[in-house]
Structure formats: structure tokens, C-alpha cells
Design a protein around this nucleic acid. Structure first.
Length: 105
DNA sequence: AACCTGACTCGCC
DNA sequence: AGGCGAGCCAGGT
């Protein structure tokens, strides 16, 4: 079980209609500083369509600008499709849709 | 085999 | 209040 695998496992636990920050995912892995690794893990994304990488956003709720599996706005579209609301074009309403507690992996 | 870099976050200055 | 460096892991050069 590599750190990347843990990242994927944690991200898969994010319930539909909610989002989690890189920091929360990293925290679920046991080390908040792994946030950067989380981003890189999703960057390689070995299982597109299986790993809901669109539910992972930055700490302030802004979607990653480097998100590119169909266009930066694609991520926003997917989230809206799940019922997640935005405070503007690129910021998720963290106050209501950020997952409260992510299960430790 | 070592070094650089990358979807982040937090703590100092 | 805003900018910069450090810490984490894996893969490519």
C-alpha cells in the first residue's frame, strides 16, 4: 500500500454531493503535509472515472486551476451535477458542502 | 542513483 | 496583511 493508493482510497470515500480539501484528504492519510502529494497523486490519476478527483478542492474551496481532464470548468460542471453549489464560478460553497469528517484510511 | 518538480498548506517575517 | 520557505511522496531526466 503506497501513499498514492491511500490517497485514492480516501478520495473515493468522499460522499457524492460533497467536496473535501487537499488538506482534509492528507489528514485522512495521517499527515496534513501530504496535501501536495495528494495533488500529485490525483495528477497521475490512474483510474479516471473511478476516482472522483473533481470533489477535491483547495482549502478555500477554489477548484484547482491545473485541473484538466476536459477543461478547467469541467470540474465545476460535474460538481453542480451532484448538487454542490458555488459562491462564484470557481469557488465551492465550503460552508455547506465541505465534507465534515473524512474517514481515516 | 541523485536531483528537480508538482492539482497544497501552514508558519514566520 | 502579503510574501516566502519548508515538509511531504513519486516519477521523470
Amino acid at each position: 500500500m503506497t501513499t498514492f493508493d491511500k490517497v485514492y482510497a480516501a478520495v473515493k470515500q468522499i460522499p457524492r454531493g460533497s467536496v473535501a480539501t487537499y488538506g482534509q484528504v492528507a489528514e485522512a492519510l495521517g499527515n496534513r503535509r501530504l496535501a501536495r502529494v495528494v495533488g500529485y497523486a490525483l495528477h497521475v490519476n490512474p483510474e479516471p472515472g473511478v476516482i472522483p478527483c473533481h470533489r477535491v478542492v483547495k482549502r478555500d474551496g477554489e477548484v484547482s486551476s491545473a485541473f484538466a481532464f476536459g477543461g478547467a470548468n469541467r470540474q465545476v460542471e460535474l460538481l453542480r451535477g451532484e448538487g454542490v453549489e458555488f459562491i462564484d464560478e470557481t469557488h465551492v460553497d465550503m460552508a455547506h458542502f465541505c465534507v465534515r469528517a473524512l474517514p481515516l484510511v
